[in-house]
Amino acid sequence: MLKKYILGSLLFLLALSACERDDICAASTPTTPQLVIAFFDQDNRTQSKPINLAVNAVGGDEIIRIDNDTIIRIPLRTDTTSTSFIFTKNPGIPDAEEDPDTPDRVTFSYNINEVYIDRACGFKVTYNALTAQASGEGDGRWITDISINNSTIINDSTYQVSIIH
């Protein structure tokens, strides 16, 4: 009786030994976080102020846009310790009430930490010791102030940087 049980299991398990689960990085797994910036009013610094914004990396083509929103998420470079962006307020709106089509340059500097997630997702990067500097671009300047709320970036659930305009 035992031997029949062993034989049956042997066949069954041999057939099963070909099974291998597909490892896919789940969308819910936290990976490399993005920088989250919130925008506030220069007359009342705790009041959120929506903005039309176009962001591109210095020397890059891709643009991230928000339309009348108070929060933007942008990625930081993972291979160097600083990334510079051009933030254009009211892009393509030459008759805006304030700061029409005005660029500003922002440079973020930080430390990079490589973190292994698992075999499906591989490696991610987290950031710490974040600093930010706004410097004019051309003759434009719309950022009143930029400050760091959280210098450690491990997830993108809440904002780490606030910009006053």
């Binding site: 990085c25 891709e62 470079r77 993972t78 490589e114 591989g122």
Partner: peptide, 12 residues
């Protein structure tokens, strides 16, 4: 390759 959810920068 560092895993990112966007293609804003080239793959690291």
């Amino acid at each position: 390759t560092i895993y990112t959810t966007n293609t804003f920068f080239e793959p690291d």
